[in-house]
Amino acid sequence: MSALERAEIQRLREGSPWTGLWAVVAKEMADHLTSARMRILELLILLTAGGTVYVAMQQIRASIGSDRFIYLKLFTLSQDPLPSLIGFLGFLVPLIAIALGFDAVNGEFNRKTLSRILAQPIYRDALLSGKFLAGLFTLALVFSAIWLLIFGMGLIGLGVAPNSEEVGRLLWFLLATIFYGGIWLVLAQMFSVVFRQPATAALAAIATWLFFTVFWNILASLLAQSLRPIQYGFLQEALAQAELELALTRISPNTLYAEIAIALLNPTVRSLGFVLPFQLEGAILGTPLPLHQSVLLIWPHLTGLIAATILLFALAYVLFQRQEIRA
């Protein structure tokens, strides 16, 4: 039977492919939120958030300024040797996301639960989608809780309520953080479809993360140097090379997330690319951008992260759908 015929049959099938989706989501979320694995990670991120925010608050109190955006400072201020909260989030988010997803499908295989679940009146579409949504919702829940905790700490420690601009920026940042997690979640889930051993899937996901964290920037630099060499030493050549390198590094979700953090949490940041001196002529430096402009600045990044998450999910979905149930 050709793939086309199969597609034809599937098209003629009755019922929604999402039957039972919410049962899967509810069960998986309950699993995530009660599993020892997640408890450990939640504790870890709670301690980091508490620690970095406390340190940031000390610094804010030490320099009593009329800063409009002290709540943003809670995320960005750091004090040696402790990195800032966004520094920690950069690797804690992928860690949590991978922990949520690396045994999604192969775990079901190994526990021999898959065929039993699929014998229920649901399509297998619901299973992977449900696991993906449950992971995403768990990430949203955990990070929302962390955000609220930070707001709470700020209210107690600083005695100032966040202004609407700060709340808006932090909500957008929360969305970005959730989808930054989402991309690693869906990658881990994809590996859990591909690899039968959860350990292999986890390792593959972490290796991918390491690749983007450590090696991709080096590789991007080398690629840019070889693809756009500086032959005559013109400014345009150097600019072209630097722009290519920037574009290449932006393939990495880490870069995207870091840039989102910079633009959203530092309202005075006007551009994430290269700025030529003449572009700053007449500019009033140090004035914050309005929120919607900061959001526009990171819009390609944010939508890119979301789209990449969805596309990776599509890939994982296709891989899972094509698999034979019998192991």
Binding site: I9, L12, R13, E14, G15, T19, D31, S35, R111, K112, T113, L114, S115, R116, A119, Q120, P121, I122, Y123
Partner: peptide, 24 residues
């Protein structure tokens, strides 16, 4: 079953050769 798998699966119980449960 190829067209109406949900209806079929709603009326048919299946015990696979290796029955697995969520141990925790």
């Amino acid at each position: 079953p190829t067209r109406q798998p949900l209806t079929v699966k709603a009326h048919v119980g299946y015990l696979p050769d290796q029955v697995g449960f969520y141990d925790e």
